[in-house]
């Protein structure tokens, strides 16, 4: 039996603490206009950045579910 600290705790910690780093980074580049939403190319980058976060979170979650499914 796989316990919580082997399955979802690392996931929550990764996307919790890592998520804080990501959100602080996004806020900083948006507030300083280093990523300027008025520029078309930057708007695409904004979507790519959010997509990447979601992509990795989904990938990890799917593998955890697959492992749990095979236990």
């Amino acid at each position: 039996m796989l316990d919580f600290s082997r399955t979802w705790l690392p996931f929550l910690y990764l996307y919790g603490v890592g998520g804080i780093a990501f959100i602080v980074g996004m806020m900083l580049i948006l507030r300083t206009k280093a990523l300027n939403k008025e520029i078309a190319r930057h708007r695409i980058w904004l979507k790519v950045l959010y997509f990447g976060f979601g992509f990795y979170a989904t990938l990890h979650a799917v593998f955890i579910l697959l492992a749990l499914g095979s236990s």
Binding site: S5, R6, Y13, L14, H60, F63, A67, L68, S71
Partner: peptide, 27 residues
């Protein structure tokens, strides 16, 4: 099943655990 998990155990064993490697490598 444990070998199919994408993340290691949170804090065990000392030579390969999730939280230590997160701070050492992820950060």
């Amino acid at each position: 099943p444990a070998q199919k998990l994408p993340l290691a155990h949170f804090n065990r064993p000392p030579d390969f655990n999730f939280v230590g490697i997160f701070w050492q490598d992820g950060i």
